[in-house]
């Protein structure tokens, strides 16, 4: 038997999980469809909010409704992809506190990668589709390559942020509520024009709470291209990913396999 865990091996694993997750989703077709529709309706209500807002005020620090549409396209597509292919990201903290990481540790594969791909949030399909449709409406063909590249970096940041937030459970026991709120926080923060923030908020958004790199800067880049910010965004997403991996593995040393955790933080 070949005893490596090559990139190819991980890719095969990834495909197998996509297949299995799809099979599970098909077992529950009805709720899958309902969830997808719900997500799209949810996105539409937010767009109605912005439509009301811009009908009244015209613009906000130079942003118009079309910027919001692009922002929602990028946000939905990247968040949807993160959920579809790395759907376990939102369950890491409960897996830690309930000792469900054991399973992954006993396999000859990268633990974090294996954890992330092994579950899918199929309602991410709704988000992703909605994002693609919005992008098709608002973007010109020339903007697409850049749009997809930025979507990729936003997806990476979403996943990394979730890993960071949920790894708190290694240190504090059951942190699912806090981790979930942090995640909801970053999504919420990313769904507003980042140009309106200032001061400390702006600093946080470009560092530990990187909503700026998820949506604000990418949208700006699509309208006013600038090499410096493109490279910064991509470098940042990679660095953020590395940090989250480091933090996860450092925490893993403290993993208690659900043995002794009795209460919540």
């Amino acid at each position: 038997m070949k005893q490596t865990s090559s990139i190819k091996g991980h890719w095969e694993l990834f495909k197998e999980y996509v297949k299995l997750n799809l099979a599970t989703a098909l077992e529950y077709r009805f709720s899958f469809v309902v969830q997808t529709i719900t997500m799209v309706l949810n996105d539409i209500t937010w767009l109605i909010f912005w439509w009301i807002f811009f009908t009244k005020f015209g613009s906000l620090n130079g942003w118009q409704i079309e910027h919001i549409l692009v922002l929602y396209a990028l946000l939905n597509l990247s968040y949807g992809l993160a959920g579809m292919f790395f759907g376990n990201k939102n369950h890491i903290s409960s897996m830690i506190s309930e000792g469900r990481l054991d399973f992954y540790i006993n396999f000859p594969k990268n633990i974090l990668f294996h954890v992330l791909i092994s579950r899918s949030n199929w309602f991410g399909v709704g988000d992703a589709l909605f994002g693609l449709i919005l992008a098709a409406i608002t973007l010109s063909l020339k903007q697409w390559p850049l749009f997809l590249l930025l979507t990729l970096s936003s997806t990476i940041i979403f996943v990394s942020f979730a890993v960071l937030a949920h790894s708190l459970a290694f240190y504090f026991g059951n942190s699912s509520e806090t981790s979930r709120s942090l995640n909801m926080g970053i999504v919420t923060m990313s769904s507003y024009p980042s140009q309106m923030f200032g001061g400390v908020a702006k600093f946080l958004m470009l560092t530990v709470f990187p909503a700026g790199f998820i949506s604000g800067i990418p949208v700006q880049l699509l309208y006013q291209f600038n090499w410096f910010w493109l490279i910064s965004t991509i470098l940042f997403s990679l660095m953020f990913l590395a940090t989250s991996i480091y933090f996860f593995y450092k925490g893993l040393r403290k993993y208690e396999s659900g043995s002794m955790i009795t209460s919540r933080i």
Binding site: M1, K2, S5, G9, E12, L13, F107, P108
Partner: peptide, 9 residues
């Protein structure tokens, strides 16, 4: 799935 995880031919 396990066959893929262990890369068994």
């Amino acid at each position: 799935l396990f066959a893929k995880i262990y890369e068994i031919p």
